[in-house]
Design a protein around this nucleic acid. Structure first.
Length: 460
RNA sequence: GUCCCGUUCGUCUAGCCCGGCCUAGGACACCAGGUUUUCAUCCUGGCGACAGGGGUUCGAAUCCCCUACGGGAUGCCA
């Protein structure tokens, strides 16, 4: 156990942004890498946002991505409470220290933090008014990712609003001090705030934590410019959950956005990532979100799943699509899934991919149909196949294989593939799917022959 | 406007700190072949980048400077 303490401090907004997820993930990884403590703190200063359902979005998303917190809501810990809305006494105590040190004053009903340095009044052409500027010494930030960053604050800033509520900068710093946070890992959008924060840490006489400002996630170029916002397609974790992405895959992709293991591996176990993870290895430049790459990582994870786990994950998907009920034969489901795992690209597509296995009615793909009838005599081939398959004694892969070999022999076509496409289409309505023979075996003699007959009589 | 951060294939990135092994590697996407009796996989190949300009050096993607571009901040939001 190390003394590293990191925190993830989301505000309950009712959604969980992919950038937040990555910030949480990098904090979590650092805690796991160092054997430190991962704290979850809820920044619910805005009372409107303090709704249980909003909180659940945060908890559910973190759990879904496998990020367990060591201290925080539902867990407890020695540094609680973990909701900012319950920490007013602590803020008041800390504020008093600032008062005593002469670093605060009131103006316009708000409490301001006083900078130290020569003061002068200047005309700010950007704001279009006169402002009081302070010639304060530049703040030096030794950022674990960016190195030395120097930035000067030039104006006093509000720490308590005129309505009595403390602002983010104040409570954030107080909480980090009071909770013993040693490393602040957050998005680069906070880098400019950090000079304020350092000043506050120093004014409190507290040790300044190590800062690590990670690059932002930018929109996919096809969507637009700038950092990804909650309104952008693909920006919300809930979306991937609903689309049945594999959480390990989403997490894996997020790891790769701004960090990599320095070799060419991309599909990684989270334990391995935690072992290798270093703040210094995080990239400096912003990353662009790429849906296709994420889908690919998801497919890789899907392929790597054990059959048991693939089946288990497929049940809710099938159920939602109305293809599965508790009465559905478990062995049949498993057999179908075994055929499909290496073929389907995602659980999102799975239901459609296997629908004809579970439903008596299934749609015909018009394009596949056109291609099928474009050449040859598919119906004649189907009739030949039907007659042959009706005659086989045992419905196994071997006997089916032999039947097709015989068919080729008898009718003189050079390859059994003269029969394959039309059989496939007649029993499934589509041109693609699992390997034909194993698929026919799994479907069973009854279903296959009935569908072939039905198709023939419908088309003749 | 000001301040801060950044800049290697369309995208994610390796290489940069400790200059030569880089005719810049991998992955996604895309394109073309091949394997596969169907379907999908898979394999091979192709396309494709050191933002630009100055230095320093025998030698620069790697060090320095400038410019351009991108991002962020500039709130009594978080």
């Amino acid at each position: 156990m190390s003394n590293v303490r990191v925190r993830f401090a989301p505000s309950p907004t009712g959604f969980f942004h992919i950038g937040s997820a990555r910030t949480a993930l990098f904090n979590w990884l650092y805690a796991r890498h160092t054997g430190g403590t991962f704290v979850l703190r809820i920044e619910d200063t805005d009372k409107e946002r303090n709704k249980q359902e909003y909180l659940d979005v945060i908890y559910d998303s973190l759990r879904w991505l496998g990020m367990d917190w060591d201290e925080g809501p539902g867990i407890g810990g020695a540094y609680g409470p973990y909701f900012q809305s319950q920490r007013n006494d602590i803020y008041a105590q800390y504020l008093q220290k600032l008062h005593d040190a002469g670093r605060t004053y009131e103006k316009d009903g708000a409490v301001w933090f006083r900078l130290e340095g020569e003061r002068s009044v200047e005309f700010d052409s950007y704001k279009g008014c006169e402002v009081e500027k302070v010639d304060a010494a530049p703040v030096v930030i030794n950022d674990a990712i960016r190195g030395r960053v120097e930035r000067a604050e030039t104006q006093d800033f509000v720490i308590i609003r005129s309505n009595g509520e403390p602002v983010f900068h104040l409570v954030n710093v107080i909480d980090d001090i009071a909770m013993g946070i040693t490393h602040v890992i957050r998005g680069e959008d906070h880098l400019s705030n950090t000079s304020k924060h350092v000043l506050l840490f120093e004014a409190f006489g507290a040790q300044v934590p190590v800062f690590a400002h990670m690059p932002l996630i930018l929109k996919d170029p096809s969507i637009g410019k700038g950092k990804m916002s909650k309104r952008d397609r693909g920006a919300l974790i809930e979306e991937y959950r609903e689309r049945n992405f594999i959480p390990e895959a989403v997490r894996n992709y997020l790891c790769l956005l701004g960090w990599n293991p320095k070799d060419d591996r991309e599909i990684l176990e989270i334990d391995e990532v935690a072992r290798l993870f270093e703040l210094e290895a995080i990239n400096k430049d912003n990353a662009r979100f790429d849906e296709k790459k994420m889908a690919h990582i998801n497919t890789e994870h899907l392929r790597a799943l054990s059959v048991d786990s693939f089946v288990e994950k497929s049940i809710p998907v099938l159920s939602k699509a109305g293809l599965w009920t508790p009465e559905t034969d478990a062995e049949y489901v498993r057999n179908v899934m075994e055929l499909s795992q290496g073929k389907a690209r995602s659980f999102e597509d799975l239901a459609e991919y296997v629908s004809y296995f579970f439903s008596e009615t299934y749609a015909e793909d018009p394009k596949a149909r056109t291609n099928l009838f474009k050449k040859g005599e598919p119906l004649v081939r189907l009739a030949e196949a039907l007659q042959c398959l009706e005659g086989i004694a045992e419905w196994t892969a071997e006997s089916l294989q032999k039947a097709f070999d015989d068919l080729a022999q008898t009718y003189g076509h050079d390859k059994p593939f003269a029969w394959f496409p039309v059989i496939r289409f007649s029993v499934s309505g589509v041109s693609g799917g699992p390997d034909l023979i194993p698929m026919l075996v799994v479907m069973g003699r009854g279903m296959v022959l009935a569908r072939m007959k039905a198709f023939l009589s419908k088309e003749s």
